[in-house]
Computed example of a mutant assay.
Amino acid sequence: MVMELWKQIKAKQFSPVYLLFGTESFLMRETGQLLLEQVLGDERDFNFSTYDMEESPIEAAIEDAETFPFLGEKKIVFVQNPVFLTAEKQKEKITHNLARLEAYLKEPAPYTILVFFAPYEKLDERKKVTKELKKAAAAAELKKLSEPEVKQWIAGQAKRKGFTMDPEAVEIVASLAGTNLFMLSNELDKLALYAGSGGRIDAQTAEMLIPKSLEQNIFSLTDKVVQRKTGDALRIYYDLVKQNEEPIKILALLAGQFRLIYQIKELARKGYGQQQIAGLLKVHPYRVKMAAGLAGRFSDEELTGMIGQLAEADYLMKTGGADKSLLVELFLMKLGRPS
């Protein structure tokens, strides 16, 4: 949904009112920046203002929206934290004249773009103001992107930053850098500097420049254990320790990975697809896809045994029964032996 909204904004097809809601703060910020770039360009110093509804009443933002732009054709007004759209109580008592907002929504100023940023998982659909706003606005729910959307977003961001990426390079960035959009954006900034304006990033360059995320390293570690490549598994573990990752954290992530593999194996046996499993377990589809590739290599007995060993190692770490790093090493070496 957000990708479609971005296409419209880039095509200069603007709505007088926008409603952006959801918990993906990066996409919310990027959509606001895109509107500022496409609508105002260099005129934002004169024709842009923002109001926080936890500190200011809505009528202040409406009055601004009804005021003509200064030396320009358009102006943008951001409305942050519109708590009156949710069932949440306000931290500080601010009285909002919602009738004034409802009247504005029926006839918005043609020279103003009014943007509501609602960083909430859900809006209160029972409220009249919520219904009126959703009816009048171009609305988009900003939530975690699916795997195809992440790849589309990576390619789009690269183009926006002035370089292109081969499809294989996009795949590598998505797999190595994880799904956190703030982290991905930082890595794309690095690729942009390397490529230069109009440059191109291929798969080999992407692999060279993008460090593996902790999540990806844990997957690689698990994969080496599955293949009984104890030496490779230990090398990955030692690299993580050199990066100041705590053994207890590594152990917890390994335990989470094996639990995920077990759950995926069980749900797949019951006929669930990967997208359904991702929804049921509330994890990103990409994690499910990676773990599903390992699930068939374990029997149920092996997985429950590994989870039990991890739980025992975790207990020993927390009770001070043994050296933490040594416990992880012993666990990896034990799993690396043939059954």
Rank of each mutant, 00 (worst) to 15 (best):
T179L: 09
G320A: 02
A313Q: 12
A233Y: 01
G305I: 14
V328F: 11
V129A: 05
Y272C: 08
E55K: 15
V129Q: 03
K270R: 10
I261S: 04
L101Q: 00
V283F: 06
Q8K: 13
F298S: 00
E246I: 11
N97H: 12
A109E: 08
I236A: 03
S197M: 14
I248T: 15
L142D: 01
E171W: 02
K289R: 13
P69S: 03
N47V: 05
L85Y: 02
L267Q: 09
K91Y: 09
I210N: 07
G296H: 07
G22C: 06
V77Y: 01
D300Q: 15
L191V: 02
F258C: 12
F331S: 01
V150R: 00
I264Q: 08
L193M: 14
K318M: 12
F48P: 11
E266I: 08
E147H: 02
R160T: 08
K282I: 08
E92W: 11
V241K: 14
A155W: 06
G320N: 07
A278P: 00
D189Y: 03
V2Y: 09
A139F: 05
L5Q: 00
K131Q: 03
G273Y: 13
E168K: 14
L209F: 09
G279K: 04
E63L: 06
F163V: 04
F14D: 00
E329N: 08
L142W: 07
A140C: 01
A313E: 12
Q90C: 06
Y315K: 13
W153I: 00
S15T: 04
V2P: 05
H96G: 10
E43Y: 05
A233Q: 04
D189E: 11
A169Q: 06
L85H: 02
T50D: 13
R337F: 11
S197L: 15
Q257G: 11
G293P: 03
L335I: 08
G156L: 01
L254Y: 13
L5W: 04
L36T: 14
I277R: 07
T23H: 07
G199C: 09
E73W: 11
F219A: 05
L294C: 04
P167A: 08
K12S: 07
A278S: 10
V226T: 14
P285M: 03
P69A: 04
Y18P: 00
L27E: 01
A292E: 10
